[in-house]
């Protein structure tokens, strides 16, 4: 038990070093790295899809397949909870 604690401490120090190393060249807040795609959506969303909320137009239209995956994940979670807690589910 006591021997493992040294490894935990070493791992923590390595993780801290990596995080602070990555913090040295962090991108400034609020400036997107590659704004071409953002500009495309902001210009086209209102006239193409007739929607004011660009975030919703991306979530449900341009990237609707991702939302289908999200809905499927929720459906699977509900199914597993119902299968786990169903009445008489684990009678021996």
């Amino acid at each position: 038990m006591r021997g493992w604690r040294i490894f935990y401490l070493l791992g923590l120090m390595v993780m801290c070093g990596l995080f602070f190393g990555a913090l040295q060249d962090i991108h400034p807040f609020g400036e997107p790295v590659e704004p071409a795609m953002d500009d495309y959506f902001l210009e086209r969303a209102q006239e193409e899809r007739a929607v004011n909320n660009v975030v919703t137009s991306i979530v449900f239209d341009y990237r609707g397949f991702d939302t289908l995956g999200e809905a499927a994940v929720l459906f699977t979670a509900v199914t597993s909870v119902v299968a786990l807690f169903r009445k008489g589910g684990h009678e021996r």
């Binding site: 929607v51 004011n52 137009s57 449900f60 609707g64 939302t67 809905a71 929720l74 909870v81 169903r86």
Partner: peptide, 26 residues
């Protein structure tokens, strides 16, 4: 306005309401 986006919002809303309520009840 907005075509299928409003329809999908309603559909996902129905699914999430029923699903999360079902999780709590079960």
């Amino acid at each position: 306005s907005s075509g299928t986006i409003a329809l999908m919002n309603l559909a996902v809303g129905l699914e999430v309401v029923a699903g999360l309520s079902l999780i709590i009840v079960y």
